Amino acid sequence: MKIAQREYLVKDLSYIIRSATAEDAKILSEVRLRCDGETENLDREQGEAYIDESGFKRIIKDDTESSSNLFLVADVNDKIVGFSRCQGNILKRMSHKVEFGVCVLKEYWGYGIGKNFLIESINWADSNEIKKMTLSVLETNEKAINLYKKYGFEVEGILKKDKILSDGNYYNTILMGRFND
Rank of each mutant, 00 (worst) to 15 (best):
K2W: 03
K2T: 10
I3S: 03
I3D: 07
Y8E: 01
L9M: 06
K11E: 05
K11R: 10
D12Y: 01
L13M: 03
S14C: 06
I17Y: 04
S19N: 12
D24Y: 04
D24F: 02
I27Q: 14
E30N: 15
E30T: 08
R32H: 13
L33P: 05
L33G: 03
C35L: 01
D36P: 03
E38V: 01
E38H: 00
E38D: 09
T39P: 02
N41D: 10
E48V: 02
A49W: 11
I51F: 05
G55S: 08
I59G: 09
I60E: 11
I60L: 04
D62A: 10
E65Y: 06
S66V: 10
S66K: 08
S67E: 11
S67C: 10
F71D: 05
L72D: 02
V73M: 04
D78V: 00
K79F: 13
I80P: 04
V81K: 03
R85T: 12
C86K: 02
N89D: 07
I90K: 10
M94V: 13
M94S: 14
M94D: 07
S95K: 10
H96N: 13
E99G: 05
E99A: 13
E99S: 12
C103L: 09
K106A: 13
K106C: 00
K106E: 13
E107W: 00
Y108C: 00
Y108K: 00
G110F: 00
G110L: 02
Y111F: 15
G112Q: 10
G112L: 00
I113W: 01
F117D: 00
F117L: 02
E120I: 01
I122P: 06
N123M: 05
N123L: 11
S127P: 10
E129C: 15
M133P: 08
T134D: 09
S136P: 02
V137Y: 07
L138C: 08
E139W: 10
E139D: 14
E139P: 07
T140I: 14
K143V: 10
K143S: 09
I145R: 05
Y148L: 05
K149S: 08
K150S: 03
Y151S: 10
Y151M: 03
G152R: 09
E154S: 13
E154G: 14
E156I: 01
L159H: 09
K160Y: 07
K163N: 12
I164C: 12
L165A: 11
L165K: 12
S166R: 09
D167E: 02
D167V: 00
G168C: 07
N169V: 05
N169E: 10
N169L: 15
N169C: 10
Y170H: 14
Y170L: 11
N172D: 15
T173G: 04
L175C: 11
L175N: 06
N180S: 15
